[in-house]
């Protein structure tokens, strides 16, 4: 059975972390009606919000839903209560990683880590470096190989990273971010 935290406590933590008024939700389901990724989710967006309200933290933090949300913002655009469900999913991703919860979609997490590693060291994203980092983390060496070569031949992937001059400022931003490292 899932551990149950007092309702107010988990909900409050999510509200603080995401900046979203989660408790305003009255389950109208417009978010789930418009969401383009429900076909890949284990919990629908309105159900995710309900879990947060009920303090069912484990179910929320272990869900696939928080990782496959593409942040298309359809939910927040249509929510009658002004709740940005994508921002709630972002907060839950961060809380899942911080609490050591098993990440339901490791590859999505590995992508974000590889992306930010590249930005942290260069100030800009170096796509080839990011892809190499991602493949090392996930051992998906052969995925999209032909496509990658095609892009390289068309000059779409640069060998060398572009670096900004004030990388010290980027390092300081990351140092203050509390972003959880690999």
């Amino acid at each position: 059975m899932a551990a149950i935290e007092p309702v107010v406590e988990f909900g409050r933590r999510v509200e603080t972390h995401s900046g979203q008024p989660v408790n305003r939700c009255y389950q109208c389901r417009k978010c789930s009606g418009g969401c383009p990724l429900t076909f890949a989710m284990d919990i629908l967006p309105h159900q995710l919000i309900r879990l947060v309200q009920l303090g069912l933290s484990e179910k929320a933090l272990q869900s696939k839903t928080i990782w496959v949300c593409a942040a298309c913002r359809t939910c927040v655009s249509r929510c009658p209560n002004g709740i940005d469900t994508a921002a709630v999913a972002d907060a839950l991703k961060q809380m899942a990683v911080e609490s050591g919860t098993a990440v339901a979609e490791n590859k999505v997490y590995a992508f974000h880590q590889s992306f930010l590693q590249s930005v942290r060291s260069n100030g800009r994203l170096h796509e080839l470096g990011m892809i190499a980092g991602y493949k090392l983390k996930t051992k998906t060496y052969t995925q999209d190989l032909a496509m990658g070569l095609g892009m390289f031949r068309r000059g779409k992937l640069k060998l060398m990273a572009e670096k900004i001059s004030r990388r010290d400022e980027i390092r300081q931003i990351f140092a203050r971010s509390g972003e959880v490292k690999a």
Binding site: H17, K93, F111, H112, Q113, V119, I173, S177, E179
Partner: peptide
């Protein structure tokens, strides 16, 4: 889109 997924601060900073 990785900044906002990983840190509330990075979303804005």
């Amino acid at each position: 889109s990785s900044g906002h997924a990983s840190s509330h601060f990075l979303t804005y900073a």
